Amino acid sequence: MKTMYTLQDLLSIVQASRQELLQGLKERGAFEYEGYYRLFDKDYLLELVDFLLTNLLIHGMDIQHMSLNQAKECIREGSQEERVDIPDDLLVAMLSLFCDVADNGEIQFDRRKICRFLGEWILFNPKNKRWEVPDFLKLWSTMGHELFKPELKDIEGLYIIRETTKFQRAIQYIQYFSIQELSTDPAQRFATLFSEKPLWKLEEIQMFLTDLAPTKKQLELLLLKFARSHRQQNTVLYGSRIK
């Protein structure tokens, strides 16, 4: 079975225009290297991000005013300690996932992209772990070397929050739960959501319906068809229409 694909290979398989395919590859973090499209291993990518942020701090660089070459040297410095040589093309591909590069070579970090990657990595390792929300937020900030302030909205569509009571104290737990792993069939999508949690606030369920209902009107129609609204303590919650 073929495991490596060129752009032409993908164009012959995927029903999309060249522009749509390239956009889709970019959104998934795919990059071309030695003629083939690839994805970074998440653990390896985390290592490169850590090299970058650690050495950026060590050398007292201004994260708001860095050049592409400075960023590459920060990563190389970390990799040299482990005696690993990283090709320049891979460095550029990695930085392109998290930075915008100006014509003059200066880079602008995308806070949300870095925070989303770090947050997803924590939740996925392991994916069945339930974190107390304060513990998760603390580790998330630490992994970003506190250079970027993470917010839960950075990882929309990647988590689910459950609340339990322990010793008469409400505790919120966060766990990996990705929209990308849900069915594209609306009925199956809602069945999965309600099997995970019987009642959802609008802002909670909405982030798992963005692909099916990109507009407010479409969202209202989906909820009307597949969900039943309940009011609890001045809060509207959505549950399954199927009893």
Rank of each mutant, 00 (worst) to 15 (best):
Arg231Ile: 09
Leu212Lys: 03
Lys201Thr: 01
Leu199Pro: 05
Lys201Met: 04
Glu203Asp: 15
Lys216Asn: 10
Leu212Cys: 01
Arg228Tyr: 01
Lys225Trp: 00
Leu223Asp: 06
Thr215Ile: 05
Ile205Thr: 06
Lys201Ala: 03
Asn234Ala: 13
Arg231Gln: 14
Gln206Val: 10
Gln233Glu: 14
Gln218Glu: 09
Leu199Cys: 08
Lys201Trp: 02
Phe208Met: 02
Gln233Thr: 06
Gln232Lys: 13
Gln232Asn: 11
Leu202Gln: 14
Ala213Ser: 01
Lys217Leu: 04
Ser229Phe: 10
Glu204Phe: 12
His230Gln: 11
Leu219Gly: 14
Thr235Gly: 01
Thr210Gln: 11
Ala213Leu: 01
Leu237Gly: 03
Leu222Ser: 08
Leu202Ser: 12
Leu221Val: 15
Ala227Tyr: 08
Pro214Gly: 09
Glu204Gly: 12
Leu219Thr: 04
Pro214Thr: 10
Phe226Leu: 06
Leu223Arg: 04
Leu224Phe: 14
Leu209Arg: 07
Leu224Ser: 15
Lys217His: 04
Leu222Gly: 04
Val236Arg: 01
Leu199Met: 14
Phe208Arg: 00
Phe226Asn: 01
Leu199His: 13
Lys201Val: 04
Lys216Thr: 08
Glu203Arg: 14
Thr215Gln: 05
Ile205Phe: 09
Glu203Leu: 12
Gln233Tyr: 09
Glu220Asp: 15
His230Tyr: 07
Glu204His: 11
Leu223Met: 08
Trp200His: 09
Tyr238Lys: 02
Lys225Glu: 10
Leu237Met: 03
His230Arg: 09
Arg231Phe: 00
Ala227Asn: 06
Lys225Gln: 09
Leu221Ala: 15
Asn234Thr: 03
Thr235Ser: 07
Leu221Ser: 14
Leu221Asn: 13
Met207Val: 12
Trp200Ser: 10
Leu199Thr: 00
His230Pro: 05
Arg231Ser: 10
Lys216Phe: 07
Lys225Asp: 05
Phe208Gly: 00
Trp200Met: 02
Phe226Gly: 03
Arg228Pro: 03
Leu199Trp: 11
Thr210Asn: 08
Ile205Lys: 08
Leu219Gln: 12
Gln218Thr: 08
Ser229Lys: 15
Thr235Ala: 07
Arg228Ile: 07
Leu212Arg: 03
Thr210Glu: 11
Thr210Ala: 10
Phe208Gln: 03
Asp211Asn: 13
Gln233Ala: 15
Leu212Met: 05
Thr210Ile: 06
Leu219Arg: 12
Asn234His: 14
Ile205Arg: 06
Lys216Ile: 02
Gln206Asn: 15
Ser229Arg: 15
